[in-house]
């Protein structure tokens, strides 16, 4: 398989931003994850390796360094709860518990129906509006367990 043309067209433009092609790799990994099922599969690593002229293992080496890249499949919706200090001081543990309860996913895992992944993350730069979650890439701040239940309950 190869990367979809839509992505390679994008990457052909992207590499022009840098004096060396490989510099576009991290941004390309983001786009692959967004477009190709929410994770970086072994196939995607091979395809990216072919595109950038790198060994797939080298793509793995980079992707595995960065917490935002999923190396295993995740649920349809991903809830990331900050558990760093400002959020912890204002009840992040209760937010995690509520998110797990509402979704049926264990912390760090995916619900049986495959709809939800819940995980904890380090400081997200929302400390003055703690506690917070990132739901599918969008921040929700100044939370209480009740608000979390409402936000997650409204997701289809």
């Amino acid at each position: 398989m190869a990367l979809p043309k839509k992505l390679t067209d994008e990457f052909d433009e992207l590499v022009k931003n840098y004096p060396e092609r490989r510099a576009a790799l991290i941004v390309a990994l983001h786009r692959c994850q967004e477009e190709l099922g929410g994770w970086i599969s072994p196939q995607t690593m091979e395809d990216l390796g072919a595109y950038f002229g790198l060994e797939p293992v080298e793509i793995f080496g980079v992707a595995s360094f960065y917490p935002m890249f999923n190396l295993r499949p995740v649920g349809k919706h991903v809830v990331s709860v900050c558990h760093n200090i400002s959020c912890d001081l204002r009840g992040a543990q209760d937010i995690i518990a509520k998110a797990c309860e509402v979704t049926g996913a264990p912390l760090g895992g995916t619900s049986k129906d495959g709809r939800w992944t819940v995980r904890h993350v380090e400081c997200q730069g929302a400390c003055a509006n703690a506690p917070m979650i990132d739901l599918d890439g969008v921040y929700h701040e100044d939370l209480t367990p009740e608000k979390v239940a409402k936000i997650l309950g409204a997701v289809r």
Binding site: A23, I26, F65, P67, M68, V121, E122
Partner: peptide
């Protein structure tokens, strides 16, 4: 002068200036 945006991917160490440069070059930070 050109201005480009580049995205990190969740690693705190890429805020350290030389880790940032490695990451900008498409490597581990």
């Amino acid at each position: 002068c050109e201005v480009y945006l580049h995205k990190g991917a969740g690693a705190y160490i890429c805020g350290e200036e030389t880790g940032l440069m490695e990451s900008l070059e498409g490597k581990r930070g």
